[in-house]
Amino acid sequence: MSPPLALTPAMADALAQWLQGEAAVRDRSPHTITAYRDDTLAFLSFLGGHWAEGATPKSLAALRQTDMRAFAASERARGLSARSLARRLSATRSFLRWISDREGYDLSAALSARGPKYQRSLPRPLAPDQARELLEHAGQHHPEPWIASRDMAVLTLLYGCGLRISEALGLTGADWPLREALTIRGKGGRERMVPVLPVAHKAIAEYLRLCPYPLEPEGPLFRGARGGPLRAGVLESAVARMRQSLGLPPTATPHALRHSFATHLLSAGGDLRTIQELLGHASLATTQVYTGVDDARLMEVYRKAHPRR
C-alpha cells in the first residue's frame, strides 16, 4: 500500500481556517480542536491515497458516497471501534459542510452516507449507600491526615456538586471561601452556576485547616503531596485502592460520583433540564442517558400516575 499523500497547501490552509473558526466562534476546547484536527487529517490522508492525488478544496466537489464508505471501511479494517469511527465521521462531515459552503458546491449526497451503529454505554453510578461509604472511607484511607482530608473534600465536590474531576482540581485559592453557588467554566468554555452544599464547604475547610501548604490566590486549592497541583491520576489511584478495600466494583471511579450525583437527583424527583444545567451539558440528549439507569423510578411513577392503573 502506498504511503498517504501530504496535504496540498490550499487544503492545509482551509483546515487551519476551519479549526480556527471552531475555536473562536464555537468556543471549542483545545482538546476538541486537537481531536477534530486528527480526525479530519485521517480522512484527508486516506483520500489522497484513495484518489492517488492530494485533495484540494475544489476537488472535494467530486466526493461521493462511495468515497465516504471506503473511508469508513478502511478505518474499521485498521481496528478503529464503531464509537471512534462515528466521532471521526462526525468531525469530517462538519469540515466538509464548512468547505462546501465556502466553495459553493453541494456535498449532500456524500454526507448522507450512514455512520456505524454502536451501543452507547450508560453511566454506572454508585448506589447512595456506596457513595456515602466511599466518601467516609476517603477521610481515613491515608496515614497523612491532611491528604485523607483532601481526598474526601475533592470527592465530596464531585458527588455533592456534580463537578468533573478537572473542574474540581482547577479551583484556585481565589475561589475560597466558596459561596453558596460556584461559577464553573466547563467543556467548551461554557459557564454554569453550581450550588455548594454545606457538607462540601465543611469538607474543604477541614482540608485547608490541616494542609501544610499556604493558600495562595493564584495557586491550586487542592495540593499534591509535594505542594504542587493535585493530579487527577493521584486521586484515581487512591479511589482504586479504596474501592478494593470496600469491595466496590471497578466502575467505582471519581467520575462515577458525578454520574451518581445526576442519577440520585433524578431519583429524588429532579427534572432533566435542571440536571442538564447543573452538569454543564450542551445538549439535553447527553443528559438523557441518565433515564436509562433509572428505569425503576420511571416505572414506579408510571404505575402510580397512569389513569388506567
Results as ranks from 00 to 15, higher is better:
residue 241 R to K: 14
residue 271 D to S: 13
residue 281 H to A: 12
residue 280 G to Q: 00
residue 132 R to G: 07
residue 112 S to W: 01
residue 275 I to Y: 01
residue 63 L to H: 07
residue 59 S to E: 07
residue 93 R to N: 04
residue 70 A to G: 12
residue 128 P to R: 04
residue 244 Q to K: 14
residue 165 I to K: 00
residue 171 L to D: 00
residue 289 V to A: 04
residue 40 T to A: 03
residue 239 V to F: 01
residue 39 D to S: 11
residue 257 L to E: 05
residue 128 P to H: 10
residue 79 G to K: 13
residue 197 L to W: 01
residue 33 I to P: 04
residue 4 P to N: 06
residue 98 W to H: 01
residue 113 A to T: 15
residue 269 G to N: 09
residue 152 M to T: 02
residue 286 T to W: 00
residue 79 G to N: 01
residue 259 H to S: 04
residue 90 S to E: 03
residue 54 G to Y: 06
residue 249 P to S: 02
residue 156 T to Q: 01
residue 68 M to K: 03
residue 202 K to D: 15
residue 229 P to M: 08
residue 54 G to L: 04
residue 230 L to K: 05
residue 110 A to T: 11
residue 43 F to S: 06
residue 237 S to Y: 14
residue 59 S to R: 09
residue 206 E to L: 14
residue 127 A to H: 15
residue 5 L to I: 06
residue 302 Y to C: 10
residue 186 G to M: 03
residue 281 H to P: 13
residue 30 P to W: 00
residue 174 A to S: 10
residue 6 A to M: 02
residue 10 A to D: 15
residue 112 S to K: 06
residue 120 R to D: 08
residue 235 L to I: 00
residue 279 L to V: 10
residue 214 P to M: 07
residue 225 A to G: 05
residue 79 G to I: 05
residue 44 L to V: 02
residue 211 C to G: 12
residue 136 E to A: 15
residue 48 G to L: 11
residue 42 A to V: 10
residue 252 A to L: 02
residue 225 A to N: 14
residue 229 P to C: 11
residue 56 T to F: 11
residue 190 R to M: 10
residue 299 M to L: 15
residue 164 R to S: 01
residue 304 K to C: 08
residue 124 R to T: 07
residue 265 L to I: 06
residue 76 R to G: 13
residue 172 T to F: 05
residue 287 T to K: 07
residue 231 R to K: 09
residue 170 G to E: 03
residue 216 E to A: 13
residue 72 A to Q: 07
residue 261 F to E: 13
residue 218 E to W: 00
residue 40 T to K: 05
residue 272 L to S: 02
